[in-house]
Design a protein around this nucleic acid. Structure first.
Lengths: 148, 148
DNA sequence: GTAAATGCAAATTATTTGCATCTTA
DNA sequence: TAAGATGCAAATAATTTGCATTTAC
């Protein structure tokens, strides 16, 4: 009844965008891979498996649209590729990432640790925070234990 | 005697890299624009003004090298362009950015606000933090006052 | 029926690489 | 003088765009 897919569909129709099978297939792939950080190419390959006639440009356009609707978050870990994460409606802001420089794994932290800092920014800098992004680079648990 | 330029030169020679006029010119440009967030293209244009025979590829190679030496920090604000900031030896970690979504300005915060969080990460997640990155998106003081 | 969306191919943008030539240590 | 660095042009990679055709509303 009130699946995430339905909510996203509603967001599209409410804003006057059309509900095409390509868009639905793309959103389904994102939902099935919520915890991966998929690039446009990744999404394309996955959607193409179920919907072979889709074009890469459509995937780019869909991801861009979902990004504008704040359905996905477009992130860039520094390699030249944009990645797209489903945004959870429960999380007002971006989540944080723990990026392992040894094995490349990306772990997520879904708590928001930055609220006190945001208050301070608004007071000390008169900067109104709308969103933030916090990534840590380092060595993950697994790689630390291997290194011993 | 102990200018930043000299220190960077020393870092190059110590690691066995050659001190070419192209590299020096590039570092000088970075020093003269410490607070801008220059793209490789920006750096190229600025260096070319003083050293017209330099090639764009050399600028890319130099910035990459300086990045590996941790002399500059390669950052990506989400538009498709990498930017390069001189790293201050006083700041062990990246500094933070306040990115205004209205006028596009980027202000820097040089304090490190994340040490308590890093401690927590190492204890709760057994993740050894080597570096981090923190950007806030929002509305800057100037744009807030204009909007009133 | 019509505005919006698609697929394809070509264009664009940022960055990297091969290679012949030059330069620093 | 030899390893390393450069400049140029060509190659690559990611993303965007033009346009004729199709489709959702």
């Amino acid at each position: 009844m009130h699946s995430t897919l339905d909510k996203i569909k509603k967001q599209l129709t409410v804003k006057g965008f059309k509900l095409t099978p390509q868009r639905e297939a793309t959103v389904r792939v994102l939902l099935e891979h919520e915890d991966d950080h998929l690039s446009a190419e990744d999404v394309y390959i996955l959607v193409k498996a179920k919907f072979p006639e889709i074009g890469l440009a459509t995937v780019y356009r869909t991801l861009e649209l979902l990004s504008e609707l704040h359905v996905v978050e477009k992130i860039n870990f520094g390699d030249g590729v944009a990645r797209y994460d489903l945004r959870n409606e429960s999380q007002e802001h971006h989540h944080h990432h723990l990026i392992c420089l040894t094995c490349g794994s990306v772990e997520e932290i879904k708590e928001d640790w930055l609220l006190p800092l945001e208050l301070r920014l608004e007071q000390e800098f008169q900067f109104k925070v709308l969103d933030h992004r916090l990534d840590f680079q380092g060595t993950c648990r697994e790689c630390l234990s291997k290194a011993e």
